[in-house]
């Protein structure tokens, strides 16, 4: 066995800075996936067929292929049509769109589960269909779907490690940087794993708090 954890302190700041970027990319992608998920769900349920079909195709493609492949497409593919995104933005867009599709599936089910009476009542009070959706139906649907979306967001945190492959210096790539200097892969990947685990525990704690508040508000 050949382990030497004494090399870690010298690179601790590098790795922790990477952790900050991991959190930043996770939060940004989570927001995009949440808002995108709501928009995709409303389109899937209410838009006319011509609009719905291309989005269906998009969702189908995103659910049937690996995230890593999608990241390559977004990072290298958009350059081909003249859009040169920085790696961080490409990573956020890739992760965000990927999880937006999964969130949208959850939100669609949830919207359909909101009692029909809510829409009817809102329409009777004189709200337009769009207003009724935006102000009455969707907010209730979103509240009900927060717990499973929380699980998706924890999956997103772990999948954010993939953006290291397109060169975003988050936690995984920072660990790789330290490994490149010290030739100590086991120590630094283990350190990265511990940091991911701690962030993961933090997210689970937040998720439990939110779930309790939702349960109390109901």
């Amino acid at each position: 066995m050949n382990l030497d954890f004494s090399v870690i302190p010298a690179y601790l700041d590098v790795v922790l800075l990477g952790a900050v970027w991991t959190i930043a990319i996770t939060v940004a992608a989570a927001l995009l996936s949440f808002v995108g998920g709501i928009i995709l769900a409303v389109i899937a349920l209410y838009a006319p067929l011509v609009v719905r079909l291309p989005f269906r195709l998009f969702a189908w493609l995103f659910m049937g292929t690996p995230l890593l492949l999608q990241l390559f497409l977004i990072y290298f593919g958009l350059v081909q049509i003249g859009i040169d995104l920085p790696a961080f933005v490409a990573g956020v867009v890739g992760l965000g769109l990927h999880f937006a599709v999964y969130n949208s599936e959850l939100i669609q089910t949830s919207i359909l589960a909101v009692d029909r009476g809510q829409m009817e009542a809102a329409r009777t009070l004189g709200l337009s269909r769009g207003q009724a959706l935006r102000k009455v139906v969707v907010p209730q649907a979103v509240r009900d779907v927060i717990p499973p979306i929380g699980n998706n967001m924890i999956a997103l945190l772990k999948d954010s490690a993939l953006v290291s492959v397109i060169g975003v210096s988050e936690l995984t790539l920072s660990a790789q940087l330290a490994i490149g200097r010290t030739y100590r892969p086991f120590e630094f990947y283990l350190l990265a794993a511990v940091v991911y685990y701690v962030i993961n525990l933090g997210m689970e704690a937040v998720q439990r708090r939110i779930e309790r508040r939702i349960a109390a508000a109901r």
């Binding site: 066995m1 772990k158 999948d159 490690a161 993939l162 995984t172 892969p185 086991f186 990947y189």
Partner: peptide, 19 residues
Amino acid sequence: RGTPALIQLFILYFGGPQF
């Protein structure tokens, strides 16, 4: 389930030789 699969893979593939 609490850590990325990619990191687990790297620990095994790149860290394994240290053992």
